[in-house]
Each structure stands twice: as structure tokens, then as C-alpha cells.
Amino acid sequence: MSDTNSVAIMNQVPDAAAGVRAESPLHHADLATVAHKGNKIGGVHFREVGLMGHLTLRCDPNNAELIGAAARVLGVELPLTPLSSVESGGTIVRWIAPDEWLITVPNDQSFDLETRFRAEMSGHYSLVNGSGGLTIYQVSGENVVDMLKKSTPVDLHDSEFPVGKVVSTVFAKSGAVIRRTGANEFELLVRRSFADYLWLWIQSASAEFGLVVEA
């Protein structure tokens, strides 16, 4: 039996013709208005990048066949070094665990990517669409590390946390996958249900530096 029959996959994104509005986890916060009315300068900048496609791939990192197939589908090698990531074109692949990677693509490409994985890969692996359950917070600015230090116990010093590093960790009383994307730029992957709590948290923790919301 081929994988496409043994596993149910579904294009979860409605056709554009259906005219269905998609709402990111912070939709209710109306960041566009906040951005318009709020601070224009400040030590911390915040932006939600919602509605992306997020796929979790699980497979044995020692299985060269699977790893090779994944690389062919993604167009980049899976990062096998713990806590590393690769970014190519619009695709980000993050190491989450020795047998787990979190892949981010534009949401309308996730079904296509899923389909290609299922066609290309066989054997023991899993691929799960988690797009509805995650959102990305981009945080940056000269005080971004100061804000993050209030929020997470991991060491964010450049020497310990270089650009490209990824950690899954505690963030406030919730969790986040943190990736450094620049000297003063980080990306936080957070769960939908915790999104509002973490947004409130970041506003509070950034207040002393001035928070600039972008949309």
C-alpha cells in the first residue's frame, strides 16, 4: 500500500473562490490599528507573521534514504546538527529534536509540499500539518535581548546563541521555539491558544524600552 492511502492528507486551505477569511491567532488584537496608532520608535519591535504553513516531519536521522528524500523535496538538506536551522527561498527548516524538524512555508504551499513528501518518501516517517496551531512573532530591536531575558531562561548571548540557532524552551509560563534571525532579531514560534497571553507578556516586558508594533 502506498503512503498516500495509508495516511490521510487533505488540502486544509479553502479555495480563494470560497471567500473564506483566515484569521491568525492575533487577529483579534488588530495589530494594524495598533501599529498605526502606537509608538514609531522603541527598543523592541513586534510583528506577527501569521497564516504560514507549518509542517512537522519526524523520521530517523540515520536513515540516509529518508534524509535524502526529504532534501530533494525541500530543496535543502535537513539540519542534522542539534539546535540548528536552514533557510532557503521561502522555506525554513528547524531542528526540534533528533528525529523532528519543523518546516515553515507559505500556507498555500503546505498541501503541495505534503503531497510531494508523500510521493517521494516511503518507509517510516510522519508528516503533520500544524499550520492552524502556530504563529510566528518576529521580535527585534536594540533591546530585544533585554526583553527576551525576562521571558526565557536560555542564554541569549551571541557566543551561546548565534544567528540560526533554534531552541524549544520555556517562554514566560508557556513555551516557544526561538530562532535567532539576526544580531537583534528573533523569531518566536508560539501556539495559537497561548498567543494572546504571550502577546500581553511581550507588551509588558517591552514597555520600559518602548514597543513598536509593525503590521
Binding site: 542539534p82 539546535l83 531562561p153 536560555v154 520555556v170
Partner: peptide, 10 residues
């Protein structure tokens, strides 16, 4: 697995 030290709260 992560090959680094982390805080107990994790």
C-alpha cells in the same frame, strides 16, 4: 539530545 545545558524548568 540537544547537546547543551538547560535549566531545570524545561
Amino acid at each position: 539530545h540537544c547537546c547543551e545545558y538547560r535549566e531545570e524548568e524545561e
